[in-house]
Design a protein around this nucleic acid. Structure first.
Lengths: 285, 285
DNA sequence: ATTAGTTACGCATATCGTAACGATG
DNA sequence: CATCGTTACGATATGCGTAACTAAT
């Protein structure tokens, strides 16, 4: 039977051209490679090399054998990696969410319900979350609406999870400071501070206020500094606790549009024997 | 690195359910299998089994590892077989012919021109020969006409090789015995003796004489006996030497149709560096 | 003289089988 | 008590590196 260690030496010889180089690269003695090449010819039952007195080259058959050797090595490596990844996946609950806020409630609940499992979450656009659901890359998805008919397999369940309302947050001397509420239409054209990792809120703001510019801050401290020191409006929601240290005396004005009042939905595979019952208990209430 | 021998033991365990059975089937001691399974868990870096004190089963990860093991074993086996097949192909000239007669001249010529090569020939229908050419399953093809434009890749060359004329062969008291020549139309409706391995002649006779029945003889001696003892007409060609021992006093009457007068053509890949020049020399004259 | 490949030899260690043990049904 | 899996031990074989040799540039 073929031996992958021998395959590796064959591949190394093919790559480096001489037995000596291959031996050096693989940290074995040069006679070892000689022996292995001889043994490979026995294994394959054909001659793989052209030999002159002090030179050895792959012949046409040898080159073909090399291509198989390389492929087998890749496959074997991939097998190990995949088995390890599968093992990890058995102990991991993967969540893809369209926004950060649902995770603040969801992750503690999951951690409580599945104390032995690793939780892995990521925030991405609605489209990416949908893809993750469909491909099975996540076990739980959080989307801002009930997914459209046909956008996900029928076996998946969708359950309302929590509401979140978007608001703008302005300094007391800002022209909006006295408003009870404000619409996207009115806001459109003003520039905003925008933190990263807002998921779909990010997309929605750009869509609803195409004339506005969003000054994206990747660094959290910079963001906080700008909130204090600039008069630019920023966004908050009713789910995040309002932190005076950050927002100082800024004033929160709810956005009046329906689109700014979101009910997040949890989506999961209703036929998953391992998780569906537990998820049902968690989310069906 | 993974070891295919260990993969085989893992696959055997999966197949036979217990370590003991696997050991027995593979003709190794049972502790060997125990050790191998332990070693496999180290290699993969994950646990692959559920163990109780005197029982061991594959867990979910283990089953996945098994599927990779099986695949790797298949691939490795296929690699060896393919390399051997490739080696053979390097020393073999494969000819697909639509009829036997051209091979009688072609094979000796090839044997002469390529004394170190093995010759491998087969007789099949025109369609099969065309497929063999297109798929590269044969190096040389013999077809009854110049292949139609587009039926084979443009890089292929077609050269006339030899002619063959079909005739019927009847006893002296047969009603056709006095004819100078005879057409398919006249022959249509009569029944004939037909040897196997006639290639495209077989198809042509059935096409041109749809009302006739062909009594196919697979055994050569039965065929010869029937030629002697029956008055049924059979087919001969001008290429096969007329053997009195077989045909006795039978009389040969040429078939007058154009379709019974064939020029065989050799077809080969004109871009094949190894063979095209030699083939050109053999067939371009 | 240097580099490359093969062969010979001796040692280290890996691997296997036997045997003994423990657990289970 | 028959079956199954693990552990321990000793023999052997496998495989490696060193060294010596040949050939080529």
């Amino acid at each position: 039977m073929l031996n992958l260690l021998e395959m590796e030496q064959l591949a190394a010889f093919a790559e480096y051209g001489t037995l000596s180089k291959a031996a050096e690269k693989l940290n074995v003695s040069q006679p070892t490679i000689t022996r292995t090449m001889q043994h490979l010819e026995e294994e394959f039952g054909v001659s793989l090399f052209e030999r002159s007195k002090n030179h050895i080259t792959l012949n046409e058959t040898g080159r073909r054998a090399v291509s198989y050797a390389v492929q087998l090595l890749k496959d074997a490596e991939k097998a190990v990696e995949d088995v390890q990844a599968f093992e990890r996946s058995l102990h991991t609950i993967t969540v893809s969410s369209c926004a950060p806020a649902p995770l603040w409630r969801l992750l503690p609940a999951l951690s409580d319900a599945f104390p032995d499992m690793t939780l892995s979450s990521s925030i991405k656009s609605n489209a990416s979350v949908l893809e993750d659901v469909k491909s099975g890359r996540c076990l739980l998805a959080v989307l801002p609406d009930i997914p459209e008919e046909g956008s996900i397999p029928e076996t998946y369940r969708s359950r309302p999870f929590m509401k979140e309302n978007l608001a703008v947050c302005v300094p007391p001397d800002h022209m909006f400071a006295g408003y009870k509420e404000v619409s996207f239409e009115v806001l459109n054209g003003y520039n905003f501070l925008l933190g990263t990792r807002l998921g779909f809120w990010d997309d929605m703001c750009r869509e609803k206020m195409p004339a506005s510019r969003f000054l994206v801050q990747t660094d959290q401290f910079t963001m906080q500094e700008l909130i204090r020191e600039s008069s630019l409006p920023c966004f908050v929601t009713d789910v995040a606790e309002y932190d005076e240290k950050i927002y100082g005396n800024r004033i929160v004005i709810p956005i009046s549009d329906q689109e700014a009042k979101i009910t997040f939905h949890i989506v999961y595979d209703g036929t998953d024997k391992k998780y569906a019952p537990a998820f049902a208990q968690l989310f069906d209430s």
